[in-house]
Every structure is written in structure tokens, then in C-alpha cells.
């Protein structure tokens, strides 16, 4: 039985002549949570966008649950039950909170809807009070909750979060980390991009550090603790 949910193999992505990702490879097992860390401009977002097909890699392969999805358009990849919470939240400024959730909601490939509107409301009670507000009228924390909620109602097997807590107040960050832990406990694999090593070490099973588009570190939380100095140096400006 295939235990790997996502496998990125020898990925090379370029923006024009700039070579961003160099033979990037890693694996994410089913039910696992993985962090992707690195300084700004090291290729974290490009990695996520390459997995999604928003940016097309020059070479390499992406396997999802054993299937090569490298050649599929973005929407077909997402229909394999992948969800994405983008950096900057990606609100649609003409849609209300309710409309964001309604337009995104769909069952998974097997027709199951574990995450529906009511469950998202129960997870994020603050959104309940703002249902008729436009997405852009929400605070940063509420927008992130809505972006996560919008991803959850697609009933994913893998959720990728880019800069999950960037620009949020410490208390709100704590809420977001707790929600990501809840998502993980519900069986959804997560790939989290953030800079908070402490929180990520607690939350994730595996950690990948990218430096100049190459894997600098790939290991478990224990291995991360053993190599903390090395990783922190790679992450510091």
C-alpha cells in the first residue's frame, strides 16, 4: 500500500532566466504534517506554486497518492483533494464570508463531506458573526480563518498553507496554530510554510529547510532539535 501522499522529485523551476528551484525533492507521508522553512526569496512559495501548477516547472515530477500530476492543469490537481491557503489570504473583495464558503464547498473525490459549512462555523465561531461581511472587511486573523475555512470545505487530503501566521497578532497566531493542529488531527496532511521554528517543531512531524532553491535540511523534529543551530543560521538574515 502506498503510504506517500505527496512526492516532489527533482523539481527545477525557473522565472525567465532565474533558476529558482534546483532539483528539489521531498516526500510527505499520508497523515503527516510537514514544515517548509527558509528565508525570504529562497523558493518556498515557488515550491508550493510548482506543486499546484500555478508556476510550471522546467523539469521534475510531482506525484500525488502515486499519480503523476505534473502535467495536469491547476484545477485538476486541486480536484485530487489538494487545498491551498495562499500568502496574503487571497480574499475575493466582492464576496461575503458566507459566499466565500459556499462557492468553494465541495465533497472529496469519494463524495464525502467531512468538512461542511457548519463544521467550519464550529471551528471558527468568530466567522459566524461576520457571515454577511465582505472578505476584505475582516481583520487579518479573521481573513486567515476564512482562507483556512474556504480550503477546508473542499474536503482536502492535503492542505498547503503559505505564510500561515505572517502579519498576525501573537494571540491570533496561537489560534491559527491550534486550528492547524486540529486539521492535522482530523487526518488531513499539512504542508506549512512559516518562519516560527518553535511552533512548527511542535506541530509538524518533518521539516524541510530550503536555501537558494536547494534542500538544506530534511528531517524529523528530533533531528531538527539536534541541528537547531545549523537550521537557525540558514534561516537568519
Amino acid at each position: 500500500m502506498n503510504t506517500t501522499l505527496l512526492e516532489v522529485k527533482n523539481l527545477n523551476t525557473l522565472y525567465g532566466r532565474s533558476h529558482i528551484l534546483h532539483d528539489l525533492s521531498f516526500r510527505l507521508e499520508k497523515g503527516q504534517s510537514m514544515s517548509l522553512m527558509g528565508r525570504n526569496g529562497m523558493g518556498k512559495t515557488t515550491t508550493l506554486k510548482s506543486i499546484l501548477g500555478i508556476v510550471l516547472p522546467r523539469s521534475g515530477h510531482i506525484y500525488f497518492d502515486g499519480e503523476d500530476i505534473s502535467k495536469l492543469p491547476t484545477w485538476k490537481r486541486m480536484r485530487r483533494d489538494i487545498a491551498y491557503v495562499p500568502e496574503g489570504r487571497g480574499m475575493f473583495h466582492n464576496l461575503t464570508v458566507k459566499e466565500h464558503l459556499q462557492m468553494a464547498a465541495r465533497p472529496d473525490r469519494n463524495g464525502k463531506s467531512d468538512w461542511d459549512f457548519d463544521r467550519v462555523m464550529a471551528t471558527f465561531p468568530r466567522l459566524q458573526e461576520r457571515l454577511s461581511n465582505l472578505g476584505t472587511e475582516l481583520s487579518g486573523g479573521e481573513q486567515q480563518m476564512l482562507a483556512i475555512g474556504r480550503a477546508l470545505v473542499t474536503n482536502p487530503r492535503l492542505m498547503m498553507l503559505d505564510e500561515a501566521t505572517e502579519g498576525l497578532a501573537p494571540l491570533i497566531r496561537e489560534d491559527i496554530w491550534n486550528v492547524i493542529a486540529t486539521i492535522r488531527e482530523s487526518g488531513i496532511s499539512t504542508l506549512v510554510v512559516d518562519k516560527n521554528i518553535k511552533a512548527l517543531k511542535k506541530l509538524c512531524d518533518r521539516h524541510v529547510v530550503v536555501v537558494k532553491g536547494k534542500i538544506h535540511f530534511d528531517g524529523s523534529s528530533e533531528e531538527l532539535t539536534q541541528n537547531l543551530e545549523n537550521v537557525e543560521t540558514a534561516l537568519s538574515v
Binding site: I54, W75, M78, R79, P86, G90, H93, L95, M103
Partner: peptide
């Protein structure tokens, strides 16, 4: 409406 505002984002929702 969403695809007019942000086509990339809408496609990334699986549409």
C-alpha cells in the same frame, strides 16, 4: 465573480 477578481486563486480552488 471570483474568477474575474482572481483567476489564479479560483483555479486553485479546483474550478
Amino acid at each position: 465573480e471570483a474568477s474575474r477578481l482572481n483567476p489564479e486563486r479560483t483555479e486553485a480552488l479546483g474550478y
